[in-house]
């Protein structure tokens, strides 16, 4: 190597030497450190990675044996009948305190008008939301992950109008609002879950219509939680009764309301003709979904509870009591 007049290391200043050699050394050091810190040493088996997910807290209140756990109200319109049912339970103040953030879960699965009873009736949502507001809730959230297009479902079902009217926070099932859920269910163990409303909610109320279902016989308050899940839900039909009973494990609501003012008696869960709907005029509210659904199936739909496998699964697993007559219940008229 020949050194010219300005060549060689001697030809550059100490400062430049430090800067240039330092930059190179830093890059070498950075590359080695970066490579080693990012190094994936071990393989994994795609699809079989260990899954972790959130565990949902219970929103249920401590049991109060003195107060009824279930109320059955008969009446002619949603508002007064729902008020009567909640009143029989001791009023909304029993469940909702001042400052609570309340998530109301309607069933908005389909893009259908209210009269077809495939979705939660807007009058039912309005009645429950008003009671919650009167009890002092600071915020009311409404969310569902429908089967049909979400915007169409909330519009056609009339629930969007109620949300606007009463200033409820309507949460659409946007992709970023789901997180993985972990559950020790019979079949449901890891699934993507509509988590967003539950990040804020302190109380949860399910408001479900009472509907015939082609596969699992009936969709009531337990089946309503189906709308909180995302992903490939069409697989649920492979083990529908296990899944529905798992919902009773997944969600411990503060209160459920089964709207039996009108009942979809056939061609469920979608219905489609007014002749599929029967006027019954009853609302059931309670803290035990299994008891409420048992009443709904045998008394509102008038069917044999023995065939409703998911109720028996949930009962046998200790997730509720299918013998609603054993519960502390109250029957009233609006």
């Amino acid at each position: 190597m020949t050194d010219g007049p300005t060549g060689g290391i001697a030809g550059i200043s100490r400062r430049e030497f430090m800067a240039r050699a330092g930059a190179t050394a830093a890059l070498i050091g950075g590359s080695v450190a970066g490579g080693i810190s990012l190094w994936q040493r071990k393989h994994f088996v795609p699809g079989f990675q260990e899954e972790r997910g959130l565990q949902l807290p219970s929103f249920a209140l401590a049991q109060d044996k003195a107060l009824p756990s279930m109320a059955i109200a008969h009446g002619t319109d949603h508002d007064s009948t729902i008020r009567a049912a909640i009143g029989a339970l001791g009023g909304m103040g029993r469940f909702i305190q001042k400052g609570d953030v309340v998530m109301i879960k309607p069933n908005v699965a389909f893009d259908r008008p209210p009269a077809l009873t495939a979705t939660t009736h807007p009058d039912a949502l309005r009645a429950v939301a008003r009671l919650v507001r009167e009890a002092g809730a600071s915020k009311i959230l409404v969310a569902d992950n429908p089967i049909n297009s979400p915007a169409g479902c909330f519009l056609k079902s009339g629930l969007r109008d109620v949300a606007n009217e009463l200033n409820l926070d309507l949460l659409y099932p946007e992709a970023g609002r789901f997180s993985p859920l972990e559950l020790d269910g019979e079949i449901l163990r890891h699934w993507t879950f509509f988590h967003e409303p539950f990040k804020r909610a302190t109380k949860v109320i399910g408001v479900a219509p009472c509907k015939d279902h082609n596969l699992c016989h009936a969709s009531m308050t337990m089946k309503n939680w189906y709308g909180l899940l995302g992903g490939r839900r069409n697989q649920f039909h492979q083990h529908i009764h296990s899944i529905v009973s798992d919902f009773a494990l997944m969600m411990k609501p503060t209160l459920v309301v089964l709207d039996g003012m009108n009942v979809l008696m056939k061609n469920g869960p979608t219905g489609g003709r007014l002749s599929d709907v029967k006027r019954v005029g009853t609302v059931v509210a309670g803290t035990d979904m299994v008891a409420v659904d048992s009443y709904g199936y045998s008394n509102l739909m008038g069917r044999d509870l023995a065939e409703l496998t998911y109720i028996h699964k949930a009962h046998d697993r200790g997730l509720g009591n299918k013998n609603w007559k054993d519960a502390n219940f109250k029957e009233t008229h609006a």
Partner: peptide
Amino acid sequence: GETRSRDRRLLMD
């Protein structure tokens, strides 16, 4: 039905 993708599985279990 491929196991690598949760979205492309065929059977629930």
